[in-house]
């Protein structure tokens, strides 16, 4: 499985002309753990969502090439896209409070995801849902399967969403800020869980986040996006050797326990980064 993106651009019409949100992004994603890092508005989520063609209707998408395992996403019909969305590439969203259906039990939602792609009986789907909840290390899976989203903590809700995405056995997992709404300790647990599942199932992972050190901790490769472009690509292990001033700025402006400083370095944005 290989995702190829060549010269991807995404723009939105505004009263004053097109606003370019993603500009000329090229990427190859194989069976690896890739982190896409950037701040609000850098285009990181749009880039990842374009793989599933899940963009706002007004978005103008162009690319020299945009393929998922050889399938041309730019020209694929909706039926083909449905075979990719969920089934071959799962999308984990930021906040389980909004992403889960509030009037369906956790088990029903996971079972629905399984049945939609695997075709089986209701009873089989429910068994599978409990089994998946067990795989995402929920202690009492049968009880949680009967629970509604509001009865679950943020961490549990996120595990439910991961279970739902794993149901069709996808080859790729796209996690869009999967832990930003969670506490630090829960955050680490969820990322370790994702990492473990991804390596055990041999899936590709695209982890989108604004947290550069965190992403580097869990990914093999990192691309840093700024104003719709990739400004730096590096191996996660080489983070300390990042060269682009924006990447360096992202790292330096974080307060750290081990280095007290009277004031934090502030990012000075060079207009040349936009060029």
């Amino acid at each position: 499985m290989l995702v190829e993106i060549d010269n991807l651009s995404i723009a939105f019409p505004t009263p004053t002309g097109l606003s370019h949100a993603v500009r000329g992004v090229s990427l190859r994603i194989g069976a690896q753990k890739l982190g896409i890092v950037g701040e609000s508005g850098s285009g990181k989520s749009l880039t990842a969502r374009s793989l599933l063609r899940l963009l706002p209707e007004s978005a103008k998408l162009t690319a020299d090439r945009l393929t998922f395992d050889g399938i041309d996403i730019l020209r694929a019909n909706e039926r083909t896209m449905r075979d990719i969305r969920g089934k071959r590439a799962g999308l984990i969203l930021q906040d389980p409070k909004y992403a889960l259906n509030p009037v369906m039990t956790a088990g029903d939602q996971i079972a629905e995801a399984w049945r939609a792609h695997k075709k089986g009986s209701r009873r089989e789907a429910m068994q599978k849902a409990v089994d998946l909840l067990d795989q995402v290390r929920i202690r009492d899976p049968a009880r949680v399967a009967r629970a509604y989203p509001h009865e679950l903590s943020g961490g549990m809700g996120q595990r439910v969403m991961i279970a739902m995405m794993l149901a069709p056995d996808p080859e790729m997992l796209i996690a869009d800020e999967p832990t930003s709404a969670l506490d630090a300790t829960v955050q680490a647990d969820i990322l370790r869980l994702i990492e473990d599942l991804v390596s055990r199932r041999g899936m590709a992972l695209v982890l989108i986040s604004h947290d550069l050190p965190l992403v580097s901790h869990f990914c093999d490769d990192v691309v840093v996006m700024y104003a719709g472009r990739i400004v730096e690509r590096l191996r996660a292990a080489d983070l300390s050797r990042a060269e682009h001033p924006y990447t360096r700025g992202l790292l330096n402006c974080l307060p750290a326990l081990s280095r007290p400083q009277p004031s934090l370095p502030v990012m000075v944005r060079d207009p040349a980064w936009l060029a």
Binding site: E39, S40, H210, D211, L212, G249, L250, C253, L254, P255, P262, S263, L264, P265, V266, M267
Partner: peptide, 14 residues
């Protein structure tokens, strides 16, 4: 965002 966080933290300290 982390770069904005740095600015606000500096402002608060100040």
């Amino acid at each position: 965002d982390v770069s904005v966080q740095a600015e606000i933290l500096n402002l608060l300290a100040d």
